[in-house]
Every structure is written in C-alpha cells, then in structure tokens.
Design a binder for these strands. Structure first.
Lengths: 259, 259
DNA sequence: TCCCATTGAGTCATCTTGACACAATGTATA
DNA sequence: TATACATTGTGTCAAGATGACTCAATGGGA
C-alpha cells in the first residue's frame, strides 16, 4: 500500500490523489447515471503506425482506455465529447459511437472495486461502483501533435501504443479496440478518416500506408493513386518534397473547403 | 378512471391488469437494470406494404413500440430476444441493434410516470420509473403470418401499421422508427432482408416492391431482375403463378441452404 | 382475332477495378 | 561524367458492374 502511494507521488502527490478520488467517489452517484460508462478509443497516425492512446491508473499492471461516466443531464455523445476534450485538449473532435460493451463477464468479480481497493481507496458505504456497468464506446481520430495531455484525475501515465503492440488491457478493453478497428475499416471509405489523421502534408505513399494498416491488406500503388485523385478530395501542393531518395513525390493535403 | 377499467376489461380484466402491473412495479428495481430500456421495431411486409407492429397500453391515445427492460444478468441482445419472443411468439428472430435513444427530452415531464398514473397505477413510494431512461433500440424482420400475439402484460391492443401511416406515437418512438428505417436501408443490400420478410413464394415484381419501399426510390425493372438473379440467392420455382393478368411470372423463394 | 400490359432476356455504352507497362526523376556508384 | 536503379506519375487493357433501352413471348380481355 505504501508502495502505491510512493509510486503515485512521482506524478501526483498521494494525498492529492486520495483527496481527488475520494471526492469523486462520494459524488459519483449524485452526478452520474447509474450503470452506464463511456470508453473512448483515440486513434492517431504517427511514423507510419496507427496508434491508440492508453492510460494507467496508479501502479496498476495494465492500461485502460480513457473513459468516464454520463452526467444525469447529458447525452451520451456530449459525455463522450466532454471526456475526449478533457483527455486530449481538443475541441474539434468527432466521436463516433461504434459499440456497446454489455457482456456479463466484464463486471464479474467486481473488477472496478478491486482496482480501487488496490489504489488504496476507501469505498466504505459506497456501492455505486459495485453495480453492473454497460459501456457505450466511441472512437475518435486525432492528430497526435495537437493532443495535449495533462496528468489529472487519478491517472499516473498515458502513452500512445502501436495498434499491433498493445499491452495488457483492463477488462474487455482489448475487445473494444478490435471493435473500433473493424468499425474504422468500414468507415474508411465513407468518412473523412484520412482528413482527421493526416495533419501535415503527406505523400501518396504515406496515405496508402494508413489505408493499408486500417484495411488490413496490400493495395496496388497505382490504382490507389488513381482512386484517391478521382475522388477529388485531395489538394496537390505543387512543391515537391526535398527527399534524398530517388524521385520526389508530390505532397498532398485534404481539401478543407467542403465538409 | 372507471372508464379505464371498463375499457381494459374488454381484453384483460381490470383487476388482473392492476395485479399484474402492481407486481411488476414492485419488483422492477430488483429485477432490471436501472435507467436502461429496450425498444423494438418489428417489421413485416404485407399486401405490398412495409408495416410495423405497435401496441397500446390501456386506453392511452397513442401507440408504443414493443419494449421492456434489461434483467440484471442479461445482455442487451438477450433482453431484445426475450422481449421479441414474448411479443411475437417467434424463436427464429434476429434482433439488430441500430440506435440508442438518449435525448434529454424523452424523459422530461416524467412521461412514463404520467402514463402509469393515467392507467390508474399506484406508484406510491416507487421511484424507479422516475429516473432518466436511455433506450437501446433493436429492429427485427418478421413474417406477419407467423407472428402470434397474445394480449398480455398491460397491453390493450396491438396492430400492424403501414410505415407511411403511423398513428401518434409515445415519446420519441416515431424518431426511432425513422432511425430503424434508415438503418434497414443500409442493411438492404448487405443482409438477408428479403429472406426474413418474404415468406411465401413471390414474384420478382413483389420483391422489387419491397426494395423500392425500403430504398425509397424507383428501380429499373429489368436491371433489378438481372441483379437479383446474378446474386444467386434466389431459387426459381418452375411453376408459374395462375394469374388472371396478362403474363404469368415465375415465382421465387430465397435459398435456405447457405447462411 | 386482335389488342396490349406485363414479363424475361438481350444489347450497348459507361464506369469501376485489378493487373501491368513505361517513361520520368533524382541520387548513388563506377 | 556516365550508368544504374529504386521510386513515382501516368497510361493501357481486360473483366465486371451498372443504367438505359429494345424486343419477343405471354395470355386474358375487348
């Protein structure tokens, strides 16, 4: 227990942490809807890798998806927006609801309560966290460079993970990431997925890399180029990249005009 | 109030009704999850019209979608299945979750409590129905001929309504039907929509009628025929319909073999 | 017997898609 | 300085899907 405090104090003083969480727990059932939580899968594209933002509570040996609860007078989307803004600092973010995690397994053994106990939190007389929770899941596409994360609440660490190398995750959060991915795959050719993930001007090859990761298959280079250009959603920036490689490709960006 | 009882007794004795609903209300919060309800949109195709099953409670001046609550140890889909089976008597039914109704308006003014009060139900000391409810919505495709509805619970009437001529509906149930329709439109070419709605052998024209209603647009007759046949999901029944009309079309049915 | 709406099948031009060819580019290497 | 070569932009071609249309066959009514 002492060890927990000690570790926590590296990021957030143990006392402060306990004050915060105690206050939160006391008020939770007055502020939030019972039995419903929100989990968010926050994607980014960095160094040719699709990544997900994960957080860690205290010195728990696993990571969590950023999540939260729904205020009594708030829609689910507003709750997701609030949580996403608080975690990423981004205002222009478009949460997409893709799944409801409602398996009975997820709240067996009182996982949340056990986690809180390990975090040295006193739950005496508070039964709000002991109920079964159903989680409404949203995904969001972000630009890693614009995300500003501040360590707050009871979080001790945050980290972007390559989608192919996820660490141990809390509860069914791994399943939730997979569901987000398969939904993202469906949305890939329907929604402006690239627009929200590609911040800086990019080459056609880089864009193709993103599509191949999400679509889970190799795409023909020349056909991909033809298709992307025919959709008329890209703007070619006449200047070429000063690459040291063999031929300089064009740079592109998504047209912002129409939405 | 007497009037209510009188009307109800036509279908369900007033006393029996009150016993049932009182027992239900007493136990609700022990059996079901708080704040979550299920609504179902049950479609059928009859006489060239797409229809929805609606029910009426007591002598309320509006209709409701068949709905219910989620047991504490039950997934959302299992809850939808249970509700659909109880209402339609069908076992082979495939609920598809398409929407979460979570607007704040829907539970303003305590609509459910007011309805129950009008139904002469004593809610003294019971606050379970006063909370905000979020409804998870499922649709199902049925064969009207196979649906066996028994008047039960607190229902006084059920009726199939043409999708284009819906009566006054409770709360946001009209919006929910619209959401179901737009989801059905997306699913039309992805899932075996026709298979579940067309029971008897049908002509290509009848199938086209169904597609045009759901898809909300005129389809070219010859191209529709070509496409349907090329998908290899229909079985041509060599015998022709003995119509009094000009030419006898083939009858078809969906191949049951592969699924 | 002729009329005519409906049905089943075919034609044709257009568009999309997958596979592949080829010239242009820009640096490294001989 | 000349050549090699990986990468990039564009073009070609065949196969398949799609929308618009034609046409013969059907079968009861006028």
């Amino acid at each position: 227990m002492k060890k927990t405090k000690a570790k926590l104090s590296k990021n957030n003083s143990g006392r402060k942490f306990e004050n915060t969480i105690t206050a939160f727990i006391k008020n939770a059932e007055n502020i939030y809807l019972p039995g419903i939580s929100i989990d968010t899968v926050i994607f980014s594209f960095h160094d040719g890798k699709l990544r997900v933002l994960l957080i860690r509570y205290g010195d728990m040996p696993f990571y969590n998806l950023p999540g939260g609860y729904v205020e009594k007078e708030e829609t689910l989307e507003d709750a997701a927006l609030r949580i996403l803004r608080r975690r990423t600092g981004l205002n222009a973010i478009f949460p997409e609801q893709f799944y409801i995690a409602d398996s009975l397994e997820r709240t067996r053994n009182n996982a949340v309560v056990r986690m809180m106990t390990k975090l040295n939190v006193d739950l005496t007389g508070n039964h709000w966290f002991e109920q079964r929770f159903i989680s409404v899941c949203f995904y969001a596409l972000t630009d890693e460079a614009k995300v500003r994360i501040t360590i707050q609440d009871f979080i001790s660490e945050f980290k972007w993970f390559d989608i192919g190398q996820l660490p141990d995750l809390f509860l069914d959060h791994k399943l939730i990431v997979e569901k987000a991915l398969s939904r993202l795959r469906v949305d890939l050719y329907q929604r402006p997925v690239g627009l929200n993930l590609m911040n800086k001007p990019f080459t056609m090859g880089e864009l193709q890399q993103l599509y191949e990761i999400i679509d889970q298959r190799k795409l023909d280079r020349t056909n991909f180029q033809r298709k992307m250009l025919s959709m008329n959603i890209l703007e070619r920036l006449e200047k070429k990249q000063t690459g040291k490689a063999y031929k300089s490709p064009y740079l592109y960006r998504f047209k912002q005009s129409d939405n």
